[in-house]
Amino acid sequence: MTKPRLATLAIIVAALAVIAFAGLSGALLNLMIFMMIIALAAQGWNILGGYAGLSSFGHAAFFGAGAYAMAVLQTRFGVNAWIALVIGIALGALVGAFIGFLSFRSGLKGSYFALITLAFAEVARILANSWNFTGGAAGILLKLQTGLPYLQFADRRYFLLITIGCVAIGLVVSWWLEHSRFGAYLVALRENEQAAQALGVDVFAVKMKAIAISGALTAAAGCLYAQNYLFIDANVAFGSWISIEALFAAIVGGSGTVLGPLIGAIVLLGLGELTKGLSGGIPGMDLLVFGIILVLSVAFSPNGLVMLMKSLGLRAPAKAKEA
């Protein structure tokens, strides 16, 4: 269990920033922004699903909360984009605490927890789709206003930098987890809740914190999404696609690892884009590739690409008995 050092993380973030300014085409810039947004959502998922072992199928609830907060606050209340971003992140944490309170109170785990999160996200999607306040089925269109105060940039590279910055925060949060009591408690309750309780771990409180942090990170991804595409509707913000991408990227990359979500997002979206190009845009081709990657990664590297990379260098002990 070698843990990446902060210096390694700094180098990776710096490399991403350099690539951003390496003269990429518009399409590639857009792809990279999208990768970073998904990576951020996956980092959020990873806190809860990876470290704490509470797999969620409904991270769309947080993503959507962030996206709608961003859109509604700006279009209806004229709130500044940066303030809306902060409120959106806080709302994500709040939604997390709400879902967490209800499910952890009754001790939901495993597939039951996964299903309940899915249900919450679906309820949110249906509500957002039918409520006038959230723009109903028509969705919300954000006004195009470029400039730093509006968190929109004529030059897309600056927006990419902001998304990279957020991913960097996600990396630091995960790094901190691996070096703190809170992180140790998360892993302890993932591995054995009873034993953790016996050692004085207040599992309810720890889970609540985990889902709040997880919700906040994924909501941040939603905020950035809304701000980047300037349009959201219920199916985009609360749709199951984002729940799936978030858990997919984290699991394929390596759940419960610092770099897993980022690597997973880059590899998955990169390959998806590549197949779209090669197959001449047959719809659903990228999904097919996603499926194949998932099967392969579960079969050959159940601990994710991060672990696969490590074991290529040095054969790690097979500790994935129950993963």
Binding site: M1, A184, Y185, V187, A188, R190, E191, N192, Q194, A195, A196, L199, G200, V201, G256, K319, K321, E322
Partner: peptide, 16 residues
């Protein structure tokens, strides 16, 4: 026995 499988011996004890 209920060890935390994902953690090594020292980390297991540190949880306590």
């Amino acid at each position: 026995v209920q060890p935390f499988e994902g953690l090594n011996v020292q980390e297991n004890i540190a949880v306590g």
